[in-house]
Design a protein around this nucleic acid. Sequence first.
RNA 1: GGCGACGUACCCAAGUGGCAAGGGGGAGGUCUGCAAAACCUUUAUUCAGCGGUUCAAAUCCGCUCGUCGCCUCCA
Length: 489
Amino acid sequence: MRIYNSMTGSKEELVPLQPGKITMYACGVTVYDRCHIGHARSAIVFDVISRYLRYKGFETTFARNFTDVDDKIIKRANEENMAWDAVAQKYIDEYYLDMDMLGVARADIEPRATEHIEEMIDVISGLIEKGFAYAVAEGDNSSVYFAVEKFADYGKLSKKDLDDLLSGARVSVDERKKSPADFALWKASKEGEPFWESPWGKGRPGWHIECTAMAIKHLGESIDIHGGGADLTFPHHENEIAQSEAYTGKPFARYWVHNGFITIDKEKMSKSLGNFFTIREVLAKYDPEVIRLFVISSHYRSPIEFSNEQLRDAEATLDRFYTTISRMDDFAAKSGDAAGKSGVNPTALDAMLSGFRNSFESAMDDDFNSALAIGHLFELVREINRYLDMKPSGRDAAALITRAKETLTETGAVLNLFGRTPHQWNVSLLKVRNIPLSEAAIEEKISERKAARDSKDWAKADSVRKALDEGGIILEDKKDGTTWKVKIA
RNA sequence: GGCGACGUACCCAAGUGGCAAGGGGGAGGUCUGCAAAACCUUUAUUCAGCGGUUCAAAUCCGCUCGUCGCCUCCA
């Protein structure tokens, strides 16, 4: 299994610290607002990675944090006239609402910064003792900074040269720091801000230190995989490395994994640019699985352009899967118990099923190439449809189709896709498309049309079809009845 | 300015040395009372451009053009 390591810039064989076990830490969100679709991508990417690692038999411990105290949360609390911790909790709740919809599983450990103040203080104290950090008085309290120049490898992840950083005009000059590139481990608290007691007086943690403290506490001093969005590479992850390795003297993470951005008009989606859509907004128009498929359909490191057209594509794609699942279900319901009819050759499907897991795994083994894996799923879908078109019958055919459906749904489950019934899919589409027809109303129309068809009143039958079609519902006549589905396009 | 990516058909998207996956869309066909779905055929002699290495390059190297990201909070 190969994984791209941002540290080395190349794909490497995944060799965990302890055979058969993986520890993974992904940087989560700062909870001061609703998540946008870029946060969704990151969450989905690491969800897929952790699911796949487990599928491959690694005993995986996955931690994803919440940053629940920081400047933006405090600012938000002041704006909303709420307590800062109430703001944090509110957006943690919102986060779970979104992620549950998107099929993002809870991480094994979801540590919050505010629950690890002690651990952070321990790390900071250790860094001061070792000479990597220094305290600077600010009134009655002190702030603590990490002395970047003391850490020889600073810049190794983001490939930045410390001299360049120091000469760069964009580093804000802060008189309290010994060097402009130094970063805060602990911030002396100002009037009205949340604070904790510490050896440096009343204060609160800097941003980066929480990940170091929480990763070490929950996963150990060296972890296997550390991930997050590509924008966290610098300074966040660079600083984590500096703190952690200065503190423990050990490599912090073996593999650094960064997901690409979601763009709008080719530009990175971000809060500051204002070009973002919240997950909630998108969920109002699209089924959550559509968003998930949209994300998984591209490689996790590639930028993906967000647009209605892209989501419509993903929706059509998903509909194709569910249509095939529906065909298989129909077949299973009526295939007989007798021997099969002659002239139906199952070889192609049989062969594809035999090799399928292998294809799927080689795609995913190669740096989690979910886009290729989905391509393989399409090949399977076509082969299934091809087989069903031959109108097979009998118990051998039924067994083959059962195997096909299991293969499709079990590999889909690794990506957390295709977990619903085709009916659930269509009912969901009815909702997101705001189609004002109930299932019962549609069924009623179908009966009406059946009566017309039975008396060969084609004009009437067609008018029912046409009326439903204009409402976004397509009817499919099958041997033993008519079914409906929501029109895609 | 420093550093790092990327540029594959009408659209999306795999592919890191050996005849360019897959999906959408388009065109034609099979099936169907009419449809839909599905299937079949077709849609890139070519991978931004120009050179080079090689028996062989979308894949490696160099240059050019274009786009984006990081260098400040950011998934």
